[in-house]
């Protein structure tokens, strides 16, 4: 008997997914380097290695509780679709690499979300309705909030970079708009707020989800440390994409008109900017 050796093999199975794969595909060959007695050898040959694989996933989940707390609704749907253990089992290798660098929570969240997006994209279509949308929603909420938190608060009095006074709106075309804070855009198959609402009420039902493709904007406002959501139409999106911090509104209108990129009229563009200045979404220089 050798408890030390058995513990060592189990620990390696949990920590090293490639070793576990090798053990599963050729148990006897993989165990050759270990001094096991006959009973221990038989024990490993008859072991359901799927259970160790899932235990590794279970441990990975526990070691990522801080990440899960940031993506709580995504986690709820992972459980709803029986994907929690498969996902965290698959994430084990990345997680182990991450442990080596002792990353902070931000790095852990970014790594997990990147992994999960790839994982979910590999699933058969429509196998987990709403899951990719809620992941994207929580990610954009988190990312906009985090990024806005690293930006300086709005400039104080006397600055040339602030909401234009009412009279300046008369010469709107001369103003140079820039985004205030962080603005992220997400494309969704289902309404993310509807999904979030169902989950919050513990009443998620994928059969009640309607395909409602839409574009949503996530504004991280450094002044209020909050994230606001806007449902965007394509016209507004093209206007937002033209904001560089150096173009005047007049230039933006001319570019949109010349490129025929949008059905939005010059008056609608101006109206958008008036609202954007008043809400604080844009500032002018």
């Amino acid at each position: 008997m050798s408890t030390t050796t058995v513990n060592s093999i189990i620990a390696r199975c949990i920590l090293d997914p490639r070793f576990l794969d090798a053990l599963a595909s050729n148990t006897e060959e993989t165990l050759k380097e270990y001094a096991l007695d006959e009973q221990e050898q038989r024990g490993f040959l008859s072991l359901d290695l799927r259970r160790i694989r899932y235990l590794a996933g279970f441990i990975t989940k526990i070691q990522n509780h801080d990440v899960i707390a940031e993506m709580a609704q995504t986690h709820t749907l992972l459980r709803h679709y029986d994907l929690e253990l498969p996902v965290f089992s698959a994430y084990r290798e990345t997680h182990q690499r991450m442990r080596a660098a002792n990353p902070g929570k931000r790095e852990k969240v970014r790594a997990f979300v990147a992994f999960l997006k790839t994982y979910l994209a590999s699933l058969p279509p429509d196998s987990a309705p709403g899951l990719e949308d809620i992941l994207n929603h929580e990610w954009l909420m988190w990312e906009a909030s985090e990024s806005a938190g690293t930006q300086p608060p709005p400039s104080g009095a006397g600055s040339t970079d602030e909401t234009p006074p009412e009279r300046a709106l008369d010469d709107l075309d001369e103003l140079v708009p820039r985004m205030n804070g962080v603005f992220r855009v997400g494309v969704f198959e289902h309404d993310p707020l509807e999904i979030a609402n169902q989950i919050a009420k513990s009443a998620f039902d994928s059969s009640r989800l309607c395909k409602d493709a839409g574009i949503w904007g996530y504004w991280g406002n450094p002044g209020s440390a909050s994230v606001r959501l806007f449902r965007l139409d394509y016209g507004v999106l093209t206007v937002l994409q033209e904001i560089t911090g150096s173009r005047t509104i007049g230039e933006i209108i001319r570019r949109l008109t010349a490129a025929a990129k949008s059905e939005i009229t010059p008056e609608e563009v101006r109206s958008f900017f008036v609202t954007a200045f008043q809400s604080g979404l844009c500032r002018a220089t």
Binding site: M1, T3, V6, N7, S8, I10, A11, R12, I14, L15, E40, G43, L55, I59, I62, Q63, Q96, R97, R99, A100
Partner: peptide
């Protein structure tokens, strides 16, 4: 690569044989 030269550290308690 995680902890060369150190014991395996599972970071979670597991039953022994």
């Amino acid at each position: 690569e995680y902890a060369p030269g150190e014991p395996y550290n599972i970071g979670y308690t597991v039953s022994p044989p």
